[in-house]
């Protein structure tokens, strides 16, 4: 070495960094595995994005625009697609987020726990009124 110093500290440092990264990777892998597992009895809701609103279709065929009514204590599976450009379906309060891509169906699920109202928004730039491509999620009491 030009300056005659020891490289030991750098190796220790790299070891610590690599160990931390392994921990991050393992934790992330584990949680992703858990949240991606869709319960078998999850009810299907078809979500369609288009400039600039959301349409929802329940299993029984009822449709809603800009509003989504679900029941606490049940699991729901969203099948998300788009009619025109790419959107991103997002219920931030329930950490639900997935792109609505034309020609593809993406799947994500959630199980609301208590009654309330939550914002639905578009998170992928989709043109003029992207900023106002919003909706509302209404969660009603279990068994109501």
């Amino acid at each position: 070495m030009v300056s005659g110093h020891s490289n030991m500290p750098e190796w220790v440092y790299i070891g610590v960094v690599v160990a931390l990264l392994c921990w991050v990777g393992a934790e992330a892998w584990n949680i992703e595995r858990l949240v991606e597992h869709i319960p078998e009895d999850a009810k299907l809701i078809k979500v369609t994005g288009q400039q600039w609103f959301w349409t929802f279709e329940h299993e029984d065929g009822t449709k809603e625009i800009g509003e989504l009514h679900v029941e606490a204590g049940k699991a729901y599976k969203f099948e998300i697609t788009s009619k025109d450009v790419i959107h991103s379906f997002n219920i931030h309060d329930y950490v639900v987020l997935l792109d609505a891509v034309p020609g593809r169906v993406n799947t994500v699920w959630f199980a609301p726990t208590e009654a309330g109202e939550h914002d639905i928004q578009c998170r992928e730039y989709c043109g003029l009124i992207h900023y106002n491509m919003r909706g509302t999620l209404y969660v009603s009491e279990a068994g109501a």
């Binding site: 949680i31 597992h37 639900v96």
Partner: peptide, 14 residues
């Protein structure tokens, strides 16, 4: 604890 996994708690705890 609900019947289903709560993705909020899992993800935010992570």
């Amino acid at each position: 604890p609900g019947e289903y996994l709560d993705r909020r708690s899992e993800i935010w705890n992570l």
